[in-house]
């Protein structure tokens, strides 16, 4: 028993995969016949936008930061895409990504150059984006927002009826994330800065450049996640990604990335996003009112995070 625990301590990702397996098994036992290829395909479809948001959040949390503007950026990029689609898909897509880039630059300037706490900085920019979108929507009342077919395919389409299209985007982002974090200098610097910013500074690293790029990438990933989300719902409204703020942080924490920085990685976040998606699916199967679902969801996230903190302490 203690040997098994020690193994899990050494390879926390194993514990996560085990937990995911237990969740899936639990569904199958409670409702035999639920877990079909179609169910798996849907779970992957829904997990992708969360995992892409989680990718950005992983990047900033590795440096000991947090980005609370991801939900507003995702909503904003989706809304801009839908309201500008009439002027051409490419133009609308570019404009949506420019929003991500702009917010990322402001966040990066604040956190990296002026050393503002990431929490406050991103809270402020999140409010700015959210408010700006509300104002912007007043001018867009007359226009007919629509989601380009290409984005609908990305967010909801499936190849041969089973393989979600957004899985390809997710896989590409995951490959890039894993490669960057483990095989490039920038990736190693993220861990180093998260572990000890002062030591990095003394070693001659231009810490601000690392952090700046970090926040820009996070905001860009949030904008991309917004596009996938709006492709899935086919309706851009101003609260589209609000519900994703807590899960975006939770999937990273559950995935074993320390909020104090320097420890963790994207592999854990992937499993974390899958666990949260399966959890949502379990709660949907339970025949309970929406508020109870919300309470259970929060309670389970909290206990998972607490268990994780115990396991790795």
């Amino acid at each position: 028993m203690s040997k098994a625990l020690a193994l899990l301590r050494g390879h926390t990702i194993l514990a996560l995969v085990l937990l995911l397996a237990v969740f899936v098994l639990g569904i199958e036992i409670a409702r035999p016949g639920t877990v079909t290829p179609l169910w798996v395909s849907n779970a992957l479809l829904f997990a992708a936008p969360l995992a892409i948001l989680g990718a950005g959040q992983t990047l900033v949390m590795l440096t000991g930061g947090i980005d609370l503007s991801v939900a507003s950026v995702a909503t904003g990029s989706a809304y801009i895409l839908a309201t500008n689609a009439a002027s051409g898909d490419g133009f609308a897509l570019a404009l949506a990504l420019v929003l991500g880039l702009a917010v990322g630059i402001v966040n990066g300037l604040g956190v990296a150059v002026l050393r503002v706490q990431p929490l406050v900085m991103t809270l402020g920019t999140g409010l700015m984006v959210g408010g700006a979108m509300t104002v912007y929507s007043q001018y867009m009342l007359a226009s007919q927002p629509h989601v380009p077919a290409m984005i609908q395919t990305l967010g909801a389409g499936k190849l041969i009826g089973l393989i979600p299209v957004d899985l390809f985007l997710w896989a590409a982002i995951a490959a890039l994330m894993l490669f960057t974090l483990h095989r490039t200098g920038f990736g190693r610097l993220l861990y180093a800065v998260g572990d000890n910013r002062e030591a990095c500074h003394l070693a001659g690293i231009r810490v601000w450049r690392v952090l700046f790029l970090d926040y820009v990438l996070c905001a860009l990933l949030a904008a991309i996640a917004g596009l996938v989300l709006v492709g899935g719902t086919n309706a851009a409204d101003l609260s589209l990604a609000d519900v994703y703020l807590l899960p975006s942080v939770a999937c990273v924490i559950i995935g074993g990335t320390s909020i104090f920085g320097g420890r963790g990685g994207y592999a854990g976040t992937i499993v974390g996003a899958l666990i949260l998606t399966v959890l949502t699916s379990i709660l949907t199967l339970l025949d309970v009112p929406e508020p109870v679902k919300q309470i259970l969801y929060g309670a389970i996230i909290l206990s998972l995070a607490a268990a994780y903190a115990r396991l790795t302490a």
Binding site: V106, G110, V120, M121, L123, G124, T125, G126, L127, M128, V129, G130, G131, A132, T134, V135, Q138
Partner: peptide, 12 residues
């Protein structure tokens, strides 16, 4: 509605 934008800008 600009209030929220101003609030965010003020924080920043």
């Amino acid at each position: 509605n600009y209030g929220q934008v101003i609030q965010g800008t003020l924080i920043v």
